[in-house]
Amino acid sequence: MGKKDLISITDFSKEEYLKIMELSQKFEENPSQSLLKGKVIATLFFEPSTRTRLSFESAISRLGGKIIGFSDSNSSSVSKGETLHDTIKMVSNYADMIIMRHPMEGSARYAAEVSDVPVINAGDGANQHPSQTLLDMYSIMKTQGRLDDLNLFLVGDLKYGRTVHSLLMALSQFKNPIFNFVAPPELAMPDEYKLFLEQKGIRYFEHLEFNDIINQADIIYMTRVQKERFIDPVEYEKVKNIYILKNDMLANTKPNVKILHPLPRINEIHTNVDSNPKAYYFTQARNGVFTRMAIISHLLNLQ
């Protein structure tokens, strides 16, 4: 049996998504585990990402494992000019699994080829960040009780936002999703994803701003509209306030609707939403620990 890695969200089958959901719930119910007792997990962060690293390290600790690694490449031999190949070869001798973040795209897939132990991609440049998608799915599953028949609003930067692309790919495996894309033309959902949905016969609608149909939403997934994505700063100024979610906009939304956001938030969700029970982004981040416990134990065949 070859080792199993998680590099892209499409590396997992629908059955595996469901297994991760089930395991996440189990770990949430009982977060103190000893499945990783005697095991060493390496967290290699070639660029800093405090949130993701702490979430993974919390997951490892709750599974009873030990952690080795570094939190930015200045404190590793990379600063001496060591290649990614050699770093991975060396660390795979020391650890039972490698969790890595790296600024170059495709670096995680390459590391998985080089490594003798399983690799989890915790972000390779703008390419993939599959554990984020799985925790998004778990948050949806937990709040809606299902991953089928959902009306999803994806809002903000739909062009460059890797989280929305991965979520779209993963949820397209489930029955009857409806996607509503809310974005300025500069940041619209790329054609390749729309074509993908069309080929699968999945309904989607595009909107330039929030409108009344948000009241049909089960999930509102917010992302950041970043100024640096705009070539013309005037265009940014024009749209920057359109994609801000405010509390009064939620007045007539469905009782089950939840607001998700991969965080960090800048201003795209007004702070007056935070106390609304429909706001879910902070709990979503908490769910990440249980989902990451599930991913680690699944890849190491501990469950």
Binding site: L84, H85, E105, R109, G125
Partner: peptide, 14 residues
């Protein structure tokens, strides 16, 4: 060659 300048194949001998 991969066109993407941020691709690992353009950074290391892959």
């Amino acid at each position: 060659r991969c066109f993407n300048p941020k691709c690992i194949t353009n950074a290391e001998n892959v």
